[in-house]
């Protein structure tokens, strides 16, 4: 059976890489003595399918992993046993059963919603929110392995609002196109912000974007 597991990764593990998360789940499931299924072949590995990697330094309460088990096991058991076997800065939040036919977690995802804290000046968040809802082009230099290119990130910025001293920002995140939150916020601010924290609140489908 396959469970889609939603988990959060907080302060204590925000610097660990995507590969390290995979290793962490491998070891945690062994500590929890859960019957994880393994791939066949020369070098068997546990059947985990992770959602989109998150940039190092970012916390999140909307991470996903699909885990295949060799035997029937109750959701609550997986939740409790895994939480006992994970460091406190990784928490299992929700578990749902899926089938092999269920689309990959990233398949329908279009955006991610972030809470961003930075050295915002008085009134700056309001300005960023206004800027986020303008329509004109927003061209940035994007570095990739093949060199740098100019990209209009406007179509990748969906929504922004102020919440206390933080900025809530929804940007493109999915299989086709993804915009890093730090790049989006510094471009909107038009200056080199000192970012204090970025927290991913949710992954959203096209219909859920607002």
């Amino acid at each position: 059976m396959i469970y889609r597991i939603k988990y959060g990764r907080y302060e204590g593990v925000k610097y660990i890489s995507h590969l390290d998360i995979l290793k962490l789940f491998d070891r945690a499931t062994r500590r929890a003595d859960l019957p994880v299924a393994y791939s066949e072949g020369f070098n068997p590995h546990p059947k985990f399918v992770f959602g989109m990697p998150i940039p190092v330094g970012t916390t999140s309460e909307s991470e996903y992993v699909d885990i295949t088990f060799t035997e029937v096991i109750k959701k609550e058991d997986v939740l409790n046993k895994l939480n006992d076997a994970l460091p406190p800065s990784v928490r299992i939040l929700e578990i749902n059963e899926i089938t092999e036919q269920t689309p990959n977690i990233m398949k329908n995802m279009a955006a991610a919603k972030y809470r961003i804290k930075a050295d915002f000046e008085e009134g700056e968040i309001e300005k960023i929110v206004a800027k986020a809802h303008e329509k004109d082009e927003l061209v940035v230099e994007k570095k990739s392995k093949s060199g740098t290119k100019m990209v209009d990130i406007r179509p990748m910025i969906f929504f922004a609002k102020k919440e206390d001293d933080a900025l809530i920002l929804t940007t493109a995140a999915g299989n086709e196109v993804t915009l890093r939150a730090d790049l989006a916020v510094t471009t909107l601010a038009g200056r080199d912000l000192k970012i204090k924290s970025i927290h991913r609140l949710a992954l959203l489908t096209k219909d859920e974007i607002k």
Partner: peptide, 24 residues
Amino acid sequence: MSYIPDDILLSVEKPSRYTGGEWN
């Protein structure tokens, strides 16, 4: 909370070396 502030940790290689908090 880490002793070294986040803006420094984010600017160095492999910051998870410096934050502890591992299992056990």
